[in-house]
Simulated scan of single mutants.
Amino acid sequence: MTNTDDKQAVNGLYPRLVVSDGPRAVDFYRSVFGAEEVERYTDPDGRIVHAMLRIGGVPVALKDEADGDPAPTTLGGSPVIIAVDVADPDAVADAMVRGGATVVHPVADHPYGQRGGRLADPFGHMWMVFRTTEDLTPEEIQERTTRMHT
């Protein structure tokens, strides 16, 4: 239980994506997810030091890579997967591929009640796009997941 007077209380949380080409990334997320750019701050060379987007009402920040902040493409990938619940994962995946993303796992129906797939965007970030196809209890999901892995 969190005490409202706790100095460690969380007041907000959002991902901050480091990318190799900030302006192109903003355009990609705008095209694929309908992102709205809320703010953008650049250095004298025009590199993004902070941009705030809204994707489906959720804040997502991004910045160009710089000293101490390497992009996944510089690191050889990222272990973080951003999950996005969308109306049509097939259409979103197609738009991502048209924008330069790579399919990691094609969009398909899954026994745990979702249709979805995983893609790597052109900037090295992993995205799972999905929609729920069945309302299952946690027990049903666990049972189906166990069957998938046996």
Rank of each mutant, 00 (worst) to 15 (best):
R98T: 13
I141K: 08
T133Q: 04
R115V: 05
H110V: 10
T132H: 13
D88R: 07
A35T: 04
N3A: 09
T102M: 12
R118C: 12
D94Y: 07
H110Y: 13
Q8L: 13
A66N: 06
V10D: 00
R144W: 03
A93H: 12
V58T: 15
L119I: 01
V97G: 08
P122N: 04
H110R: 14
L53M: 15
R54D: 03
V10M: 14
T2D: 11
R40T: 14
R144T: 03
A87N: 10
V103F: 11
N3Y: 04
L136E: 04
D85S: 10
D45K: 14
V58K: 09
M1G: 15
T73V: 14
G116I: 09
V60I: 15
F33C: 09
T102K: 15
D27C: 01
I141R: 10
V86M: 08
V19D: 10
G99W: 06
L17D: 08
A66L: 12
P72T: 11
D27T: 13
I81A: 08
M1E: 10
A93N: 02
L119E: 04
Q8N: 15
I55C: 06
R47Q: 12
P23N: 14
V58A: 14
Q114P: 00
T133N: 01
M148N: 05
D64C: 11
I141M: 13
